[in-house]
Design a protein around this nucleic acid. Structure first.
Length: 585
DNA sequence: GCCGTTTTCGGCCCGACTGTTTTCAGTCG
């Protein structure tokens, strides 16, 4: 784990323990913010760990955190954290993770109830001996018990690819009602986050009661969690929590902005409003004096997000950018990245056919790509190392390439490239000889095995593949599977620097299990001058639809059309593929 | 603990919902 990541974990732990012990909430928040900053930092703090001046130049790190960083660097530990650990049993801190249980409840359970673990809490709820504690009545305990049971059975965040189709289905069903004026999904889903805690749906409606009733009566509803005048929550049969909020139509934009978040983005926006003697909340942007009487007053702006941003002196910030990663400053200077849309994507450079583990023939793949409006599709079947995927040995690859070229000669309006997705072996060598790779139009090199090797080895491995003169694209560079497998954790700065130097593109694999590279690494890559390849890794016709997940992730990574090889014209793409070859001759 | 064209103190986003109270504390987003 990197120095920054270790510190981020440490600060998060501090925050949690401080919260349980009833520390000042703003102090807790400072540690949380510090941890978050550390995770987003692209440069390592270790070299400057003993220089408070340089450390405090980072936003969110002041004198206190700088001292902790120096202490950790010097001694490998932080005294205050050790003291907190000694004072608070592990099980007590763990109770904070139960939904509906916050610091106050944990403190009551621990100090007054003697509960020091989730297991003990579960038992005590079952035998009913807890009900004498203040503010812990029968219903509350019942709810906590349910939360524990649910967390034990599921608990994990949903992948974007599972949550988005579900949200679209719910939005479409609610939109079909006569009384519905507007309805959208908001929250982390609208921001295109790779995993989603719960789905937020926002609606404006002439008959809120009817809408809420329809919502709780949908066939996918397993349990109604709460239902108020403006907020209703359900759990679906797949275990996903869905919140519906109903707002006035003329306040819709303010609500959409508010519920899209992120929380951190909202904080910056609210502060920006205050700096201009305005107030921003979920009901609109107000003059400061009107914020107290929103019922009678007229908002400065409320019906669309765009107007609210404009009234705050900002160009419209796309939902994927709203993470407090510098987007507000960029919008103020009119320097936001150009939004990458599906119309910019003109080719697919990573696809499989029946020759390895795909479901389409070469002709069918070409036809599907053409139907999607692409000028080029690359056939990149697996190399021999992928035995389970029917990977090709050298002889089969030669015959396959010849057949691809033969078919390409007969097709109009679509170019089919002869390529491969060659394995990057554990030591960074490739699964084919260089002279065979040199015969192909496009080479995608990907790690598929030895995905738990250490960081140093992974870095060396990927850099070596990047240095190979015949490699155009590094496919799904870390090999992670979201929520299932962590994949490689190389020194991404070194990998990116190598890719920039050698002109290899890094892939953003659009499959929602992968989304690899992830958003923050993409941003570091384009800032370093790397090209990005956004591919669906199609194994069948429907996989081309996965491109949408790639676009969301790319926008989160501040990737613009000019950074993406799939946005190149036929001619420019041919030139790019060639340049790699010529540059090394 | 962080931060500063109201800078070394005094703020730090704020409203909905629930359950336990009987006017509000705790949690969540």
């Amino acid at each position: 784990m990197s120095f920054n990541a270790q510190l981020a974990d440490l600060f998060e732990r501090m925050a949690k323990l401080l919260e349980v012990t009833g520390a000042n909430a703003f102090r807790v928040n400072a540690y949380q913010r510090g941890a978050r900053r550390l995770r987003e930092l692209s440069e390592e703090l270790e070299p400057i760990a003993d220089d408070p001046k340089q450390l405090t130049a980072t936003e969110g790190i002041g004198k206190g955190l700088a001292e902790k960083i120096a202490e950790f660097h010097r001694t490998g530990r932080v005294e205050e954290l050790e003291a907190l650990r000694a004072a608070v049993p592990d099980g007590v801190a763990a109770m904070m993770d139960i939904p509906g249980v916050g610091p106050k409840t944990v403190a009551t359970l621990w100090k007054q109830g003697g509960i020091t673990s989730i297991d003990q809490l579960k038992q005590t709820i079952a035998d009913g001996s807890l009900e004498d504690l203040p503010r812990l009545g029968k219903k509350t305990l019942e709810k906590i018990g349910k939360s524990i049971a649910y967390a034990e059975s599921a608990g994990q965040r949903a992948r974007l690819g599972d949550a988005l189709p579900l949200a679209v289905r719910i939005v479409e069903e609610l939109a079909a009602l006569n009384c519905t004026k507007r309805v959208d999904y908001a929250g982390s889903l609208r921001r295109g986050c790779e995993t989603i805690g719960d789905i937020d749906i926002l609606a404006a409606c002439e008959d809120p009661q009817a809408l809420a009733k329809h919502f709780t009566g949908m066939s996918l509803v397993d349990e109604v969690l709460l239902s108020g005048k403006t907020k209703t929550s359900i759990r679906t049969d797949t275990g996903m929590q869905v919140d519906l909020r109903i707002v006035r139509e003329d306040r819709y934009g303010a609500a959409l902005m508010y519920f899209t978040g992120s929380k951190e983005h909202n904080v910056v926006m609210r502060q920006r409003a205050i700096d201009r003697d305005l107030r921003l909340n979920e009901y609109g942007l107000w003059k400061a004096e009107d914020a107290e009487r929103m019922d009678e007053a007229k908002p400065v702006a409320a019906d669309t997000e765009k107007v609210i941003y404009r009234k705050l002196g900002l160009s419209h910030i796309g939902p994927e950018l709203r993470e407090d990663r510098g987007e507000v400053a960029a919008a103020a200077d009119d320097e936001l990245p150009e939004p990458l849309t599906i119309d910019h994507i003109q080719c697919e450079l990573h696809a499989h056919t029946t020759t390895s583990d795909g479901s389409l023939s070469i002709e069918e793949l070409a036809a599907e790509a053409k139907r999607r409006g692409f000028h080029t599709v690359a056939v990149t079947d697996h190399s021999a190392g992928q035995v389970q995927a029917n990977g090709l040995d050298a002889q089969r690859l030669k015959r396959h390439a010849a057949r691809i070229r033969q078919i390409n000669g007969k097709l109009d309006d679509i170019t089919v490239l002869a390529g491969t997705e060659v394995d990057i072996l554990a030591d960074g060598s490739l699964d084919y000889e260089d002279d065979l790779l040199a015969e192909l139009d496009v080479v995608v090199a990907s790690p598929h095995s030895a995905l738990s090797q250490n960081s140093a080895k992974a870095t060396e491995r990927l850099v070596r593949a990047i240095e190979n003169p015949y490699v155009h694209i590094i496919g799904h560079p870390t090999g992670r599977l979201i929520g299932r497998r962590e994949g490689l954790s190389p020194d991404m700065g070194a990998v990116i620097a190598a890719a920039a130097e050698h002109g290899a593109a890094l892939e953003l694999n659009a499959n929602p299990w992968r989304l690899d590279l992830r958003d923050l690494h993409l941003r570091a890559a384009v800032e370093a001058g790397c090209m990005i390849a956004i591919n669906t890794d199609a194994h069948g016709p429907a996989d081309f639809d996965l491109l949408g997940y790639g676009l969301l992730t790319a926008r989160r990574g501040w990737v613009e059309p000019k950074h993406v090889v799939n946005c190149l014209s036929t001619k420019a793409l041919a030139k790019w593929l060639q340049s790699k070859r010529q540059g090394d001759q």
